[in-house]
Amino acid sequence: MLTKRIIPCFDVDGGRVVKGVSFVDLRDAGDPVALARAYDAGGADELVFLDITASHEGRESTYQMIAETADQVFIPLTVGGGVRTPGDMRRMLEHGADKVGVNTAAVERPALIEEGARRFGSQCIVVSIDAKQIPSAGGGPRWRVYTHGGRRETERDAIEWAREATERGAGELLVTSMDSDGHQSGYDLELLRQVAEVVEVPVIASGGAGEPEHLYLALTEGGAHAVLAASIFHFGHYDISTLKRYLADRGVAVRPAADGAPVAETEVPDARP
């Protein structure tokens, strides 16, 4: 049976993780490779790196970081942030990313999704949607798409954009509720439900996880296929095995955390890319 996925998300800047975690006891909590290995061992089903690096030099270290992580962690790896062209996608994939997340550039030039899907396959194009609820005159809630890390409002309706993005070839949607993000009071279930209703591809819920129940609700009532979470791990309240046990006890199919590493600590020659 296909299982629901739990996906930790890290913000990275210049090849370093800038949102720390406390549940894993690491000498260097900013080391992406060490973190990725720890989460892999802990039962993470996938990893997402969001690159917030501004400088050109910093982006080179991001590629290096992707390569080093992909060399040691044998679960799917998605990298997003600052992807503007098929060339950017290619570089990330060549360095070991399995999927590339696009957000602002896809909203500004939706053909980017088609170009990426045609060249690399839909399966590696994740369209990330930042949505914020707007006041609507009756007829239920509506959401507007935001870009530039949530700083810029667009004219696009989030549900419409979700539909268009998948029609253009997105293989997955990462849907973040800006209203819920950071509040740890739960995902925006109505937003998730509406997106999941209009698209056929998997939906990853993001923004608002604070309690195990929030993940459960997103995966059941929200219709999401995966949950992305940062704070729930970063603040050390829950580890993945606890969350998975919680979900499994409530009838949600998950890959047991014990299925994660320990992968043998074999040192492989030629560790550099």
Binding site: M1, L2, T3, K4, R5, D45, I75, P76, S122, Q123, G171, E172, E200, V201, P202, H225, A226, R255, P256, D259
Partner: peptide, 29 residues
């Protein structure tokens, strides 16, 4: 949803050395 994307289980129906040590119920991507 199609693509079928994510971790699903194997049901081993015949013994083969490629799956040595891997039992039905193992999750793969």
């Amino acid at each position: 949803p199609v693509p079928h994307m994510g971790w699903n289980t194997l049901d081993v129906v015949s013994s083969h050395p490629l799956l040595a040590g891997i039992e039905s119920g193992a999750h793969v991507y």
